[in-house]
Design a protein around this nucleic acid. Structure first.
Lengths: 135, 135
DNA sequence: ATTAACCTTATCGTTAAGGTGAAAGTAGGA
DNA sequence: TCCTACTTTCACCTTAACGATAAGGTTAAT
């Protein structure tokens, strides 16, 4: 059991951020002392990291709130399960389209790098032939 | 040549958004009339779409500003070229790590879907055998 | 028992990415 | 010419995701 400052440090976030996440309903402390101190275990660390990952790839905390539970507890009733299933599918599609997007960007970047590199080589060769000055 | 409202419509954004992008230095109108009216051509449409794509995958407009030019004009001096090259590489690495992240999420989602689905089937079979009630 | 280093809630501030509306100038079709 | 539907700048408003600071309680080692 870690106090808030400790997991904050381990997770590389501030305590403010953790309390904010809690306020949004992203998770709750593993337990709360009578004096109000929050205590967490390693599980929370995993959750925090997942949240950060999802943020990095463009999800808002609200969106994350909607999906974060899907990863971390699956004891549900039948109706809930079918709803969850739908949600997972939609989320999966969204992710797939993002991957596609990123791959496109990646491809163009690679082409740019190629062409930039070869133009650089050309320029340098030209520079070696004549005394080299302009450009 | 389109007026601002027209490409806005074509791009699926508001005119405010376009002026805001311009203000941030993401692009300039293809030309500006003496009365202040902005006019754009199809090239701008491509740029806008690229910006939106990059936003979708988690880049801020400031970050986008830094890279957007790399796609759309490559007449530069040698020093500039080498700097650009570095930037492209860094950007590429970032994108690669995002793709990796998304693929991880995707994998876990698929597993979740699998297990959720099979548990659903189990529950339904159970429901068929006995009169079915709880869960 | 004191003290440094934690923790609590509460509130105000900040940045990004626009939305919204005012007041005024234009375009172009009837 | 006139009217409607644009367009301009300016300024204030909003939401998300925290940062910063205040004012006070707690812990644990000395």
């Amino acid at each position: 059991m870690f106090k808030i400052g400790e997991i904050a440090k381990q997770a590389g976030v501030t305590t403010r951020t953790l309390r904010y996440y809690e306020q949004l309903g992203l998770f709750v402390p593993s337990n709360v002392n009578t004096n109000g101190y929050r205590y967490y275990n390693d599980d929370t660390l995993v959750v925090i990291n997942r949240i950060r990952d999802l943020q990095r790839v463009g999800l808002s905390l609200e969106e994350i709130k909607d999906v974060i539970g899907l990863y971390f507890h699956q004891k549900k009733k039948v109706e809930a399960k079918e709803k969850t299933l739908n949600y997972l599918q939609v989320h999966l599609n969204d992710i797939d389209s993002k991957i596609t997007l990123l791959n496109n960007v990646k491809k163009e970047l690679k082409e740019q790098i190629q062409s930039t590199q070869s133009r650089l080589v050309q320029l340098k060769e030209k520079g070696r032939k004549n005394g080299g000055s302009k450009n």
